[in-house]
């Protein structure tokens, strides 16, 4: 008989921080609390009461798009843990761009940014993160595409079938995948821009 486990790991691709936060909160609502995140793809959950926790994901990057210093990151983590949240450990190549905070729902509403300036700073950081990722992905896409074309043209067997080498197909497939990721990363940027603009308009008449 299969043993009932209190833990499970799911592979999920969330391209935006908003999507990730929404997904994690949905899992909490169904009684699964995140306990470990690996490479931003594998999420380990532990059984909890449905709706027992609220998750907030915040950026560990500053509004100028730079990664926050270790000291600043520690400051943010200290403020979060002091207010009753736990930080979900993240194993990643560069695990310094996001902070996952989980807080019991019984402690009340869990909002990280409670004023307009902090919200603007957070959305600006998210948008810059996406812009940087879009540029990075696009460059890799172009590189893959050019590489694939070069392989197909230059390495084509001169005699016989004249077939395209397998390597070129791999390059084209990778480029296609990068193009999909590029589009997915590009889509949320206008929505962040709209949110920032609305908040700036709001700030002109209230705090």
């Amino acid at each position: 008989m299969k043993k009932k486990t209190n833990r499970m790991t799911k592979t999920v691709i969330c391209l935006t921080i908003d999507q990730e936060e929404e997904y994690l909160n949905k899992m909490c609502a169904h009684g699964w609390k995140p306990v470990k995140i690996m490479l931003g793809l594998w999420f380990t959950f532990e059984k909890c009461e449905p709706g027992e926790y609220i998750v907030r994901v915040t950026t560990g990057i500053d509004p100028k798009g730079r990664k926050a210093s270790r000291e600043r990151r520690e400051r943010m983590i200290e403020f979060l843990t002091d207010s009753g949240a736990e930080i979900v450990p993240e194993i990643n190549v560069d695990a310094k761009t996001r902070i996952y905070a989980v807080r019991p729902a019984r402690l009340g509403k869990f909002e990280i940014n409670t004023d307009i300036d902090a919200l603007i700073a957070d959305y600006t950081a998210r948008r810059r993160y996406h812009i940087a990722a879009v540029i990075f992905t696009f460059l890799f896409f172009v590189f893959g595409l050019v590489n694939g074309i070069c392989m197909a043209v230059l390495l084509r067997t001169p005699e016989g079938s004249g077939s395209v080498p397998h390597g070129a197909y791999i390059e084209f497939a990778t480029a296609a995948l990068l193009l999909v990721i590029f589009v997915c990363l590009l889509v949320p940027i206008p929505s962040y821009t709209r949110k920032i603009r609305k908040l700036r308009e709001k700030r002109q008449i209230e705090e």
Binding site: T58, R75, L80, E111, D115, A118
Partner: peptide, 13 residues
Amino acid sequence: VKLGAGTLYGAIN
């Protein structure tokens, strides 16, 4: 006024 950790973090910095 209930300050969130992000608001406090930004202001303190």
